[in-house]
Design a protein around this nucleic acid. Structure first.
Lengths: 109, 109
DNA sequence: TTCATGTGTAAGTGGAGACTGACAGGTGAA
DNA sequence: TTCACCTGTCAGTCTCCACTTACACATGAA
């Protein structure tokens, strides 16, 4: 994980509304309109937040067809576990240099 | 740590400039003007970022007198280690409810 | 056809926070 | 006195992003 990914991750989670979204999605998947109702948030706004969370790899969206034929966009939490201290931050910054030289490290996750 | 503290922490680290500040302070303490020169950042702006980092508990500032009598404001990293996953986020949110009922948990750090 | 449900996006507004420039004040050395 | 440092803060500007309103387009049921 380089500093750009780390930044995307941190700024995604570092927002009250998005913390609420994560909390609401914790028990299981929900589709957008339902989630918007529960949070008392407009749907376009929720879209923005979900998009941000998805780009950062925190949630995953998937279009599904309900029994009565309606298209529902379901979102669920993606598993993530990031440890944050001086060393992990420095590691992310050092990773940038490796990225530039084209030495893509073969690490998973 | 409740969600407010978590939010302060995440939004403090989740900024490119402040990541750079942390990187620069990692080897050891620096005073404000010196740090501003190294980062190529105006001093008032740096003050804002340092203030934000200090409120979130990431850095500590201390006014010191140099040998030649000048006052220097030194900043150094405070030790921190936060693990971030669904459980720790939910724990922070649940902590809010405890805060409201006045049950301050006697946990350290 | 109309209504209630859903997805998806475009266009605009408002405000918080990032950022700049300028100031006042202190010190020791030339 | 002047210079070269330093701290600390105020008052602006500007940019980004959070947020709203409104639209186009589907589906099944009444």
């Amino acid at each position: 994980m380089d500093s750009e990914e780390l930044l995307a991750f941190l700024s995604a989670v570092g927002h009250a509304q998005r913390i609420r979204i994560i909390t609401e999605l914790a028990p299981g998947q929900l589709y957008v309109s339902e989630l918007a109702r529960r949070l008392g948030v407009s749907r376009p706004l929720l879209y923005m937040h979900l998009e941000r969370l998805e780009k950062a790899g925190l949630v995953v969206g998937r279009l599904e067809l309900s029994d009565d034929g309606k298209a529902l966009k379901y979102f669920e939490l993606a598993p993530f576990d990031v440890r944050l201290n001086v060393d992990t931050i420095l590691a992310a910054v050092r990773q940038d240099a490796s990225d530039e030289t084209g030495q893509h490290s073969p690490e998973g996750s």
